[in-house]
Design a protein around this nucleic acid. Structure first.
Lengths: 85, 85
DNA sequence: GGGCATTTGTTCGTATGTATG
DNA sequence: CCATACATACGAACAAATGCC
């Protein structure tokens, strides 16, 4: 019911574009497990968005378990094989 | 109809709930002079409101002279003993 | 160890679009 | 139409951790 719903602000939110782009890079192997994804500043330039928007996208990726973030270092693609426990 | 109903914790406007909560914390010493009040984001979570609503409450506190806000740092309880130079 | 650039974390300032009463 | 409220977005400044020299 997304096709026919009057989606007001969910149509093409900028943060969703960034999210989809990075998720696709991971899914299709352009960003492999252990690799560092572009920094927030880089995502900003790459997609022409503000830092908050890039951060929002990364936060969702983190919540989905696709990436992990390390303070002062960067955000890295999770290795699904290392699914300990 | 509700002209004379003394509603202290009433279900007034959301921003008034936030306003009253922080004002009470200051009045009753839970937030002392110089202390930083919860950030806008924290007030949002604490009271289940949007940022604009939390900001509205803080703005009134600022207009009342109860707090001062510093960009990039936070909002602090004013010390009534300190003279305004 | 100090200094600097990079990177993420946090916070406030401002604006826009949408929804509701 | 307007005020309130929510979600999103962009901008700016400050803070802390990291890494390299």
């Amino acid at each position: 019911m997304v096709e026919n719903s009057p989606d007001p602000h969910a149509s093409r939110a900028p943060y969703l574009r960034v999210l989809e782009a990075v998720a696709a890079d991971i899914r299709e192997g352009r960003l492999q497990p252990g690799a560092r994804i572009p920094s927030e500043a880089q995502l900003c330039e790459m997609h022409g968005v503000a830092r908050e928007t890039a951060r929002r996208a990364v936060r969702v990726l983190r919540e989905r378990g696709l990436v992990v973030t390390e303070w002062g270092k960067g955000t890295y693609v999770v290795d699904p094989d290392e699914d300990a426990n």
